[in-house]
Design a protein around this nucleic acid. Structure first.
Lengths: 335, 335
DNA sequence: TTGTATGCGTTATCAA
DNA sequence: TTGATAACGCATACAA
């Protein structure tokens, strides 16, 4: 049961391969009559163009490489979902690579998608180094960063407004009367962590609060991280009355530590998360958090990439808005 | 900056394209000396074989299609992560398609991966119909189902032991003295739901408990579903003293409903989830649940597919073990 | 051991 | 409007 090719259709209709090709790809210079005959025969015979041959010839694969840190993390899952949705809509396929936040694997992943002849790349870089992205820039292959960006690299990107997110979260706590506001941040090489911290500082400054250094830590990613950091934070004096965490994940760890210390959220300590993941609203104390439009981020990245596939496009940098979702993990400071 | 091809290397070394090809793909019948010369030149020139041309010629793409219901769901995310990891290890790439649990999109997704000339397919079918999978069977393309299976279709699959999982969860509750054990199940067209229910029934039977019908509902997928069903369940008389939910997701909704009804987990009602997702251990009341080896499921599926890529393989059906993780959402029945 | 020639299924150029 | 022919880059049967 071989696949039917242009040659088969040509043979069946008596036209040349060339004419069949032109007729089927809706090119001009084919008489209406001929086209109908050919299209009908092709349909009946179940002709499907061979993408491989087509790609070899045209140097276009209608495939994009998507590289993320951890597809099991629902944050990246949502990003990828958005990309896939938008890509599919435009008849592009997605080749997915996972880096596990490992820079070497990122380098390899890029090699791989390049060898797959993808038309473009959408990547959330580890940011542990930037050579691999610089290299992409040099190669001239269309790509867009998503979720993270390099402040000193002129690349396409789609991110969310992390500075503002950090600001909103912190301001919310300040307006509730908190003064000892700790931040448990993510790894600082990641732009979103850096920028949320900037937002945090801006809020403190705006409201005339200067921050004791020890209230800020960085490097937390998992719930366990949040748990550990919060535990030591709770032993400090003065104890923070509010904690702003890098992610909802981290927040859950924080809340666990608070619980185990015999304290209550939000009565004793307010907690603000980041992302608004699926569980944020359903934990025993629904989490106040910064909502980031994850799927939209992916969709937008796919759209930008599609634009960039055309020649001579100016760099496109998109910053999606975020909003603060106030739930029950925060309340007025009562000390 | 064109890519360097075999022809380029041939020209540079003075050998024919053929010899270069043979030398580079480690075929016999090339003198050691020639090989060295060629390999060296190729390396220096940065030769990378063109996968497209190679695939066109060989009819092998080293690409597999992975089709899941919802990549933003960390369950599927973990499956895909496992597949990608194992595939990469064997130098296969993954083309990811999302169906949103929609049967039509599943059909389309299969069309797409077929046109991408994938060497094989790994799919978690929606199971709303089975024609699309039957069709795959007929086509003879290697594929393996994962996470879900058809009891009446002779396909490769990798699943977890859902019957036993349902049994373990229910038995655990029975041994704690519960008699009114409700099950909030998932959609019954999904094999895992059907099988967990079977395990539930087997446990009840084994311990001589016959079940009142209204204690079992089906169709729950989200936290909201769990919340709604649990709310109405709590109004029943007699009220169940324990609830076994289709997933941890559903469980979180259940716990919320219980909380809002002014009842306590586990004192008033015990809850058992399924999956052991990342949040199960970190909710205020850590969830007793059935752990399923998600990433391993993906890895195993990729391994099975790889085997099936060889000719004349017998069908392979794998059932991975699960275990019960007892945490704090279950306790002795005290009514 | 090495080279020549052909084909994989398309698309594109150029004549007819 | 249509057809012959070449080319994309690689692999292979066969000849040398």
């Amino acid at each position: 049961m071989r696949r039917v090719t242009l040659r088969d259709v040509a043979k069946a209709t008596g036209f040349s391969i060339n004419t069949v090709s032109r007729a089927l790809s809706h090119k001009p210079d084919v008489s209406e009559e001929t086209r109908e005959t050919i299209v009908e025969a092709a349909t009946k015979m179940g002709y499907r163009p061979n993408k491989l041959a087509r790609s070899l010839r045209s140097n276009k694969t209608y495939t994009i490489g998507v590289i993320v840190a951890d597809i099991a993390n629902p944050y990246f899952g949502a990003l990828v979902k958005g990309v896939e949705k938008e890509a599919r809509k435009r008849h592009y396929s997605v080749i997915l690579l996972n880096t596990d936040e490992d820079y070497e694997r990122e380098t390899e992943a890029i090699q791989v998608v390049l060898e797959e002849h993808v038309d473009g790349i959408i990547i959330s870089p580890t940011q542990k180094e930037k050579e691999t992205i610089k290299n992409l820039l040099q190669l001239g292959i269309p790509f867009v960063l998503f979720g993270r960006r390099f402040s000193d690299l002129a690349t396409n990107y789609v991110v969310t407004d992390d500075v503002h997110g950090g600001f909103l979260a912190t301001e919310h706590l300040i307006l509730l009367g908190h003064r000892q506001i700790a931040m448990i941040n993510g790894p600082l090489h990641i732009s979103s962590a850096k920028e949320r911290f900037q937002g945090y500082r801006e809020a403190l400054e705006r409201y005339g609060l200067k921050q004791d250094q020890p209230l800020v830590t960085a490097g937390a990613v998992t719930m366990e991280d949040g748990y550990e950091v919060a535990k030591s934070l709770l032993n400090q004096n003065p104890r923070p009355t509010a904690i702003f965490a890098f992610s909802d994940f981290v927040s859950f760890g924080v809340m666990k530590a608070i619980r185990e210390a015999g304290l209550k959220v939000p009565e004793d300590i307010s907690v603000v998360g980041y992302d608004d993941n699926q569980f944020a609203s359903c934990s025993e104390i629904p989490l106040t958090t910064v909502r980031v439009p994850k799927e939209e981020l992916g969709i937008s990245a796919a759209k930008v990439l599609k634009e960039q596939l055309a020649d001579n496009q100016p760099i496109k940098q998109v910053e999606l808005p975020v909003d603060l979702i106030v739930r029950q993990s925060t309340s007025s400071c009562n000390t």
